[in-house]
Design a binder for these strands. Structure first.
Lengths: 337, 337
DNA sequence: ATGAAAGCGCTAACAT
DNA sequence: ATGTTAGCGCTTTCAT
């Protein structure tokens, strides 16, 4: 059996309280006793029972993270940022996958509440608010939403500034001297729409009109993202007016477009430029290295974790309700005109 | 404040025990009472306090996972398998990153032990066994090692059959009619050596001698894996005897080699075949789709989680001490001669 | 500067 | 079929 406070106390002819006080850094214990206790604690390799502590104090120093899947690059990045920050703060992190299923999401949130986590970090798939009951009733546990704004729930929000992502990518191409921007715009989700809005804004800020026939939606089922983007790119190359640059919703799509162009003997970046989103290091260093928008998953995770621990400490729900993290453009060869 | 057992008991004029029994499915409660309790529990949205339960029972129904980083594809896969299985078993999963630093690894293990996890799943970076103390002293917590065999610690092991991975990849190429296999062998780690051994075995089983000049080590610092593999491939193409196929330690390396060959106007797969390892879906569907060895990260995670929960349940440390998971070859165009 | 008592929310073991 | 007692390991509060 593991060693308990009492074991140390008995061993030293002191009371449990004295040991507890030493370990929690109270100052009303003599230096001598403190030293004796600390030494014995080390010798016996005492590890405090966090469960008992939690039951007594009502705090677990543990956060819960709920994500659709850890295997998407973006989620892994965000989770990494969260894990890093929680570790530094001496918090634990319970991670749950939901496969995008609302039912599992609710189930996992309930599991986390049962485990008394101090806060829940949630990348939700639910546009609806079935988890409303939880956030309502259980006033104790704070919620931090990531990347997807909840409809009107209590809890703070951190996410990428999607509109800025679209803007930055497009503006970079225009600034580099490219003129006819094609945008492989990805799915018709809230995020996809925001990013497209940024793209359009960048165009109109330069008095350019997006040529709508270059606005392709590569969503669709069956084929891989790469193949779908390749096909879209082929169609673009056959158009009356060819674009002289392409921005894409993801790095994979940008890479697919670039590969297609290269196969058509188009010179990159001289004749055609490319920008992706994600700054996925495995993808951006391939072939002609790819300019990409870093969406700051790591920072978003860090920020979310900090908001969570702060919210968990404060009684009152604290200040900032919503934070957008600005993207950062990483220039590489593919757009170096 | 959240609702407690006692609240329900008072509300129904029953004792805490009756409620507890109903919720844990004891049979010695009348059907009528059971129904009444269940209904009120649902109405009040009662969520049991797992912390109190754990303190009382000594079990947390929580596993700890320690990995170098969640952002490597392989780790994300393994973690995904673990998360899936623990969820199905109604276990929680505390995830920790160590950035490959032994100090952090020990720290995180201690954190997990403090939180009384029922078992620790560990992808260790330590060849040494600094965590020995923990595994020794804390007889209660079980250890499951993943992908890296510990030197001689208590605890079970699950990992990929690395030798088989090397064998399967090479044998596939030979079976397809390729003759001169080049192997971009990756780093000189224990795993790298095992995989090379499998490669050599496959060659000698066919009475072929690996041409040593084709055995390249792409380890080295600074440049990205893709660039290093590209350079290695260029050297291979300038050699007196060109290989007619390439197998690589990773999918990125295989892709780099293939891109280099394609840039040299070599026809894939007719003139040259390629096989990678990892079966990374984002990479294998690019360009000429890449044949790759699936290293079964998901299955390894699932198996590890099952071993962990089983070990946590049984008092005695149970049977199987070591399991190797066989790789699965996924044939695609790049080697379709 | 040190310690005794009480109790966090739950359940194992034993009454009734 | 239902309830009582005791206690998991710790900390808060209040003595001494």
């Amino acid at each position: 059996m593991p060693i308990r406070l009492k074991d140390i106390a008995d061993d030293l002819n002191l009371s449990k309280m004295t040991i507890s006080k030493v370990l929690s850094g109270q100052t009303d214990i003599s230096a001598e006793t403190t030293a004796r206790v600390l030494q014995r604690v080390k010798e016996l390799n005492y590890i405090p029972n966090a469960t008992a502590n939690s039951l007594r104090t009502g705090k677990t120093r543990t956060l819960g993270l709920v994500v659709p899947s850890l295997r998407e690059t973006r989620m892994a990045e965000i989770a990494g940022g969260i894990a890093e920050t929680t570790r530094a703060d001496q918090y634990g992190l319970i991670v749950c996958e939901t496969q995008g299923e609302p039912e599992l999401e609710n189930q996992q949130i309930e599991m986390l509440l049962s485990r008394q986590v101090d806060a829940v970090l949630l990348v939700s798939n639910q546009d609806t608010n079935a988890f409303g009951e939880h956030t309502q009733r259980n006033a104790k546990t704070r919620f931090v939403f990531i990347d997807r704004k909840p409809v009107g729930k209590p809890g703070v929000f951190v996410g990428a500034d999607e509109e800025a992502i679209g803007y930055v990518a497009c503006e970079h191409l225009l600034h580099s001297g490219y003129k006819r921007v094609a945008y492989l715009r990805g799915p018709r989700t809230a995020i996809g729409d925001l990013r497209a809005k940024g793209f359009r804004q960048a165009m109109s800020d330069r008095k350019l009109t997006p040529q709508l026939n270059l606005l392709l939606d590569t969503a669709g089922s069956g084929e891989s993202e790469y193949r779908r983007a390749s096909q879209a790119m082929k169609r673009l190359l056959e158009a009356r007016v060819r674009p002289d640059c392409v921005m894409a919703y993801t790095d994979v799509m940008a890479l697919a477009a670039m590969d297609t162009a290269l196969a058509h003997r188009i010179k990159v970046p001289e004749e055609m430029g490319f920008v992706g989103c994600g700054n996925d290091i495995a993808l951006c260093e391939m072939r002609v290295s790819l300019t990409s928008v870093d969406m700051r998953g790591l920072e978003i995770g860090q920020k979310a974790a900090r908001m969570a621990t702060r919210a968990a400490r404060d009684e009152r729900s604290s200040g900032a309700r919503s934070t957008l993290v600005s993207p950062r453009l990483v220039k590489r060869t593919s757009s170096a005109r």
